[in-house]
């Protein structure tokens, strides 16, 4: 790891000014992606600004038909939250499937979506539940947040503060873990709510995507059987030693059905 200057921010305002003052600053929340990246010398920021201990970023609030999760909330705290479990059990279940207990004790939801790993779990929740991503500057629709491989709508110096998840009538998440890393080979979040039906897929492509044909079929009949005969094209999907693009395309169908079943359909 190259050396850097470490700063611990006590508030969002402190984080903003430390980031602005740094020559080439990087935010660190849980460090579960950033530190491995620094250890591999894949990045060399001049300054690391630790936002992991900012109390205002670590709240979970359930009000007005939405659950708002602070960006600094650890995966274990989303998984263990009574408010999340009662309003959106699929979100708690997804958090429990991330990595291992030690990664869940440090890693945060904000860090996960800012990183936009193609195989990360949370992107499926942001898009599949129709969440809004709030930053220190604006609110970004979940559908517009992920823009490609490790690419998001965040601007230079922008800090995610929270994510607001509308409470669905039903939602389910199904994940087929990649056998070595346990990230999602394919993960599908399905939800039905005021905004209609959503089917969001992570792991299969360079970035999370929705499957319109499945959403239309489920809008008429919210059951796994409604997905019979609907296939996803392998064009542009990820391929590696763990599975071809065709294999992933097939898994999308299987995981989507399991997600609908998990949602009670």
């Amino acid at each position: 790891m190259y050396n850097f200057n470490y700063h611990r921010a006590g508030s969002l305002a402190e984080a903003e000014s430390a980031l602005a003052a740094a020559e080439d600053g990087a935010l660190m929340a849980g460090g579960q992606t950033l530190l491995p990246t620094l250890k591999q010398r894949l990045a060399s920021p001049s300054d690391v600004i630790d936002i992991g201990a900012i109390p205002e970023l670590a709240n979970i609030e359930s009000a007005g038909g939405a659950v708002t999760v602070g960006a600094g909330t650890r995966h274990a705290d989303v998984a263990g939250s009574a408010a999340v479990a009662s309003a959106i059990p699929a979100l708690a279940a997804l958090a429990e499937l991330i990595g291992d207990p030690q990664v869940r004790n440090m890693g945060t939801i904000g860090g996960s979506i800012a990183n936009a790993d193609p195989a990360a779990d949370y992107p499926a929740a942001i898009v599949g539940l129709g969440a809004t991503v709030n930053t220190n500057r604006r609110a970004i629709a979940g559908d517009d947040f992920f823009q490609g491989l490790f690419e998001t709508a965040l601007d230079e110096g922008e800090i995610i503060t929270s994510m607001a998840f509308p409470v669905p009538e039903a939602a389910g998440y199904a994940k087929f873990p990649q056998p070595a890393s346990r990230f999602a080979m394919v993960g599908v979040m399905v939800s039905r709510g005021a905004g209609g039906v959503r089917v969001a897929v992570t792991g299969a492509g360079p970035s999370v995507f929705r499957v319109g044909d499945m959403e239309a079929a489920l809008a008429g009949n919210f059951s796994a059987g409604a997905l019979d005969g609907i296939s996803v094209s392998a064009d542009g999907l990820n391929a590696d030693i763990h599975g071809s693009a065709e294999y992933r395309a097939h898994l999308v169908g299987v995981m989507a059905k399991r997600a609908v079943q998990a949602a009670g359909g």
């Binding site: 470490y6 611990r8 660190m28 460090g31 579960q32 530190l35 491995p36 690391v48 630790d50 992991g52 030690q102 990664v103 440090m106």
Partner: peptide, 9 residues
Amino acid sequence: KSCTVLAAQ
């Protein structure tokens, strides 16, 4: 994992 936490953190 103490290999993935900074001492300063």
